[in-house]
Nucleic acid binder design. Structure first.
Length: 734
DNA sequence: TCTAACCAGATTTTT
DNA sequence: TCTGGTTAGA
């Protein structure tokens, strides 16, 4: 058989997978083994060699960004052929589309909106309040987690109620009913509903299921280890009856159990499809053997897994650097200096480096260090654009226009900017709406038609003014105007610009954000509001970051999934941070899975590195605003010392850990300077000195003080204004 | 009804 | 340290 050019450059295992025939296939692959590459080639192969029409293929990726990249690569592989009709995207995006099309067979209309976590919490609070449940005792977050877990397991409120086995579950169950009522009344679905409703749709309407089964001849899934039960049911349903299912994953990289991902789907797959072919990809093309050995040593401690042997053709490589920092600032400085040094030595560009941490809060000292030094960086994912107040407000307007039943959005913005509709009037509106069995939004619109309502003249006037605006915007939407002019109408009619731009620096920032939202709305010139809103709800800005800047990336271990960098720094390797305190607590309560997942998280981090890996932990770390001593992560003890260079481990044994803890307990009471290990040197900078920084240019020193082993200097720059800078990044002039 | 001040509380990860 | 929620006062 003549070989397909699509198989060129692949190893035998990869070829085997790409060119596999029909039927169920499970590809179990280690990190850096070309999983995504195999999946991409497989899609191209189906089209080119097996003659499958693109619209008969569904390929599910973990992020929207991965989907975009895959689309581009496949098209390139097929010689620029346009692959329209290919169903490529995340589970959520694909489900959102199906639910829109099949709305008449669901409890929702096609104008439904998607509730994100913030909206969900608002709705949960509402539900709990209705039920007189004390949200101090049962936090909305914990209730939401309970409901979300139920939905991921495909448990409807009724089924869940039958399984209640604890007081907490009882509370969750009651809130679940009320919460679902609120969602339905608002014509809104949360993330979990998108999946669950789609599966329910298929279960309840065999003809609908059959339609999609006929359409999708091949179903491919990436990151299979991070699917939850609902997602598994979905692909199971879609792939039937031919079961041309191609699932790619690595159970050792399962890091989303907290949100319902269930690595047991791998086992389910093998049980449900006994004839499935399992193909292993074990060769690693990414990392040096040293890095792989460290990763293997860390992950091997986990029980209940299929051992994999990872090998690479890349050679041994350099040893892994371990650094014990004094505190998080010292750690940040050390990382920054290392990146600058690697750059000066001409070994790696800043853009080839990534700094990874467990929690978003850890980015702060890093950002500060970079800012002080005037070195640019790329912060990935942290404060999410769509999470900003002004953006959420504007989107709430758009959602309300699109779907007047969305009372969470209505209540969010009915008095933003303030327009005389306070808690009292709002309460009256709610009560009246309920009495005439309309959602508050629709009741509001009915007011314009002269509906009889028990409001004071003053309240009524305020409500009517707002209703008038809403009706006006809806008319724009109904006339088919694209998102941007509608958005502009909202901005103009509400006087949002004046409201936000209050003369403060933050005000200008907020306005800038509004302008960015306008920019993204401008991309939807030929789409309607529904499409724009869906996109906004399902595409995180993690997906849209700019890769083209030559600056180090700062990101959490979770968002590092699927990425690779020549140089990786893993910081904050301490007990309580990685593994996170929550998992230690869970472990103490007898749940070993939590710790195993933390370990996998570290495994993912280590295996992102191609050439150089730097590990660090701090001797003390600031938590909740004050600084406390910390212990090196237990995971560090699993890395063979022969692979490491740098600091000896302070907590090499359990006994040592205990004595370390005792020692640091009393050190905690000493002034900081006692614990600092660097002897102070005379200050280099005095007020009035002229100095220069490569990034900010020339300036004059305002003030300077010692700060551990470095100097913190306030400088008035001639052009860049006043900055606080690490003395290491200043040179005296003259 | 609105604003500002205060206080308490919480801090994992994200489609 | 920050955020959010509550309360008091205008």
């Amino acid at each position: 058989m003549p070989e397909s050019p699509l198989l060129e450059g692949l190893n035998p295992q990869q070829r085997d997978a790409v060119s596999a025939g029909t039927g169920p296939h499970l590809i179990l692959a280690g990190p850096g083994s070309g999983k995504t590459r195999v999946l991409t080639h497989r899609v191209a192969y189906l089209v080119q060699e097996m003659g499958v029409a693109p619209y008969r293929i569904m390929a599910v990726t973990f992020t929207n960004k991965a989907a975009r990249e895959m689309q581009q690569r496949v098209e390139r592989m097929l010689g620029g052929q346009e692959l329209s009709g290919l169903s490529l995207g995340t589970f959520h995006a694909l489900c959102a589309r199906i639910l829109r099309v099949e709305a008449e067979n669901t409890p929702y209309t096609r104008d439904y909106v998607i509730f994100d976590t913030r909206d969900q919490l608002t709705a949960i609070k509402q539900a709990a309040t209705q039920l007189n449940i004390d949200i101090k005792r049962f936090t909305p977050r914990s209730l939401l987690d309970g409901i979300s877990a139920a939905k991921n397991e495909m448990l409807t409120p009724e089924v869940f109620a039958d399984r209640v086995d604890s007081y907490f579950a009882e509370i969750v169950s009651r809130v679940y009913f009320a919460y679902q009522e609120i969602l339905l009344g608002s014509n809104a679905m949360d993330f979990d509903d998108l999946l669950m409703q789609t599966v329910l749709l298929f279960q309840q309407y065999a003809d609908v299921a059959a339609k999609y089964q006929r359409r999708y001849e091949h179903v491919l899934v990436d990151e299979f280890q991070d699917t939850n039960y609902a997602q598994y049911k979905l692909i199971h349903a879609l792939a039937a009856p031919q079961n041309n299912l191609f699932a790619v994953g690595d159970p050792d990289q399962s890091i989303y159990a907290f949100r319902g991902a269930d690595y047991r789907n791998v086992l389910r797959f093998q049980k449900d499809f006994p004839d499935a072919r399992v193909i292993l990809l074990e060769q690693n093309y990414r990392s040096t053997q040293t890095i792989l050995d460290a990763a293997t040593a860390v992950i091997n401690v986990n029980t209940n897994r299929v051992p994999k042997r990872l090998f690479t053709g890349r050679g041994k490589g350099e040893r892994i650097a371990l650094y014990e920092a004094y505190d998080e600032d010292d750690e940040a400085r050390h990382i920054l200096n290392t990146i600058l040094r690697l750059n000066e030595e001409g070994r790696y560009n800043p853009g080839e480096c990534a700094i990874m941490y467990r929690t978003n809060a850890q980015s702060r000292p890093l950002e500060e260090a970079f800012r002080r030094a005037g070195v640019p960086y790329r912060l990935i994912g942290a404060t999410r654009f769509y999470d900003r107040r002004e953006i959420r407000d504007l989107l709430a307007y758009l959602r309300l226009i699109h779907n007047p039943d969305d009372s969470v959005s209505l209540e969010r913005i009915i008095n933003v900017p303030t327009r005389g509709i306070g808690e009292r009037t709002l309460g009256e509106l709610r009560a009246w709406a309920e009495s005439i069995r309309l959602s508050p939004g629709r009741a509001l619109l009915a007011l314009l038609e002269g509906a009889d309502a028990p409001f004071s003249p003053r309240s009524r006037r305020a409500l009517e003014v707002f209703a008038g605006l809403l009706a006006h915007w809806q008319a724009l939407a109904a006339a088919g105007r694209p998102p941007l002019p509608i958005l502009d109408a909202v901005i103009d009619d509400t006087g949002l610009a004046a409201y936000l731009r209050d003369g403060s620096r933050e005000g200008e920032d907020r306005w800038e954000n509004v302008l960015s939202l306008r920019e993204s709305a401008a991309d939807y010139e030929h789409a309607d509001l529904a499409e724009f809103l869906t996109q906004v709800a399902l595409v995180s800005d993690v997906d849209v970051r700019d890769d083209n800047v030559d600056a180090p990336a700062l990101l959490t271990l979770h968002s590092a999934k699927g990425l690779e960098f020549p140089v990786v720094f893993l910081c904050g390797l301490e007990e309580g941070t990685l593994p996170h305190l929550r998992s230690l607590e869970a472990d103490a309560e007898g749940d070993p899975d939590a710790l195993a997942e933390e370990r996998r998280l570290l495994y993912v981090g280590i295996t992102r590195a191609k050439d150089r890996l730097y590990l660090s932990y701090a001797f003390r770390r600031t938590r909740f605003g004050d600084s406390e001593p910390s212990l090196p992560s237990r995971f560090l003890q699993d890395v063979p010392p022969a692979l490491l260079e740098g600091a000896p481990l302070a907590g090499a044994s359990r006994a040592a850990q205990d004595s370390f803890a005792r020692m640091t307990a009393w050190m905690d009471d000493l002034p900081r300077s006692h614990a600092a290990r660097n002897t102070p040197s005379p200050p280099r900078f005095q007020p009035g000195m002229r100095v220069i920084n490569p990034h900010f240019g020339e300036g004059v020193v305002i003030a300077a003080r010692r700060y551990h082993d470095a100097e913190e200097v306030d400088v008035q720059f001639d052009r860049a204004g006043r900055k606080r800078i690490d003395g290491n990044f200043l040179e005296p002039l003259g």
